[in-house]
Amino acid sequence: MDVGAVAVPAGIAVFGGLFAVLVGAYGLRKSRRVSETGVRVQALVKRRRGEVREESALLRPLLQFVTEDDRVMEVVCPVPSTRRQPFWDGDGVQVSYDPADPRNVVVHGRERLGPERVFIAGGALVVLLSVTLLVVVLAGG
């Protein structure tokens, strides 16, 4: 088997896996930083204009809150409504926002860290498999 025919795709897969690990780590770091150092406020759940009441539970609603400097912010909720924990129009939720960029919010009790962890684990698995393939091909070739 030609070493180059395996090395190039494996090298590309390594870079793709490393990219996935970095994206997941960045997401985890950002969520943790905003949760720990952000400003905690109460936000009002609002349905988007034009939504039918039944559909609003399935989509990401708007969160409206007031920042420390008295700006009213309205951002799309970073997590979707679920059957177990739906967002209803008029509900109040605790959020933390980044004072430097109030559009970055974390909804307390609903931090979905699973996708970031999947990116990290999947990327690490791709890197491991690609490097193992390279080692096997180079040792055999």
Rank of each mutant, 00 (worst) to 15 (best):
S56K: 09
P61V: 00
T67E: 00
R49L: 04
R112P: 02
N104T: 14
V34P: 07
T37C: 07
R53M: 11
A57M: 09
M73H: 03
E36V: 05
V45P: 01
T67A: 01
E116Y: 13
P80K: 01
R117P: 04
V34F: 02
V118A: 15
P86Y: 08
D70E: 15
S35W: 04
G92I: 15
S96D: 03
G92N: 06
E55S: 04
G50S: 06
P102K: 01
C77V: 04
S35G: 01
S81V: 04
S81A: 14
L63K: 02
G109S: 04
Q42W: 05
R47N: 09
V107S: 06
P61L: 02
E54Q: 13
V75D: 02
E111C: 12
V106K: 01
R84G: 07
V66I: 09
Q64A: 13
V76E: 11
A57V: 15
E74C: 07
V106T: 02
D101K: 15
S35P: 03
G109K: 05
E55T: 03
V95R: 02
V79H: 08
R84T: 10
V95Q: 00
P78T: 00
Q94A: 15
L59K: 11
L58Y: 06
V95F: 03
E55P: 00
D69F: 05
A100D: 14
V105K: 01
V118W: 12
Q94E: 13
V45H: 00
L44V: 12
R40A: 11
V45F: 02
E51Q: 11
E36G: 08
D98E: 14
R48N: 06
R33V: 10
A43P: 00
V52P: 01
L59R: 13
D70G: 02
D89C: 02
R32S: 13
A57Q: 14
R71V: 05
L63C: 07
Y97N: 13
A43R: 00
R112G: 02
R103A: 09
R47M: 15
P102N: 02
S81T: 10
E116Q: 14
V118H: 07
L58R: 12
L113I: 09
P61Q: 07
G38V: 06
D98C: 08
E55R: 06
G109W: 12
E51Y: 06
Q94R: 14
R47F: 08
R117H: 15
G92Y: 15
R83T: 13
L44A: 05
R83D: 09
E116V: 03
P86I: 10
A43H: 03
E74Y: 00
V95E: 08
V95C: 07
T67R: 00
V45M: 05
H108T: 13
A57F: 15
L44K: 14
D98T: 14
M73R: 13
R47I: 14
R71H: 09
D91N: 15
S81L: 13
V39K: 05
L58T: 08
V76I: 14
R49Y: 05
E36A: 15
T82F: 06
G38E: 10
V118S: 12
T67V: 03
P86L: 03
P86G: 09
A100K: 10
R40V: 06
R60M: 10
R48F: 03
D70C: 10
A43N: 02
T67D: 04
E116S: 12
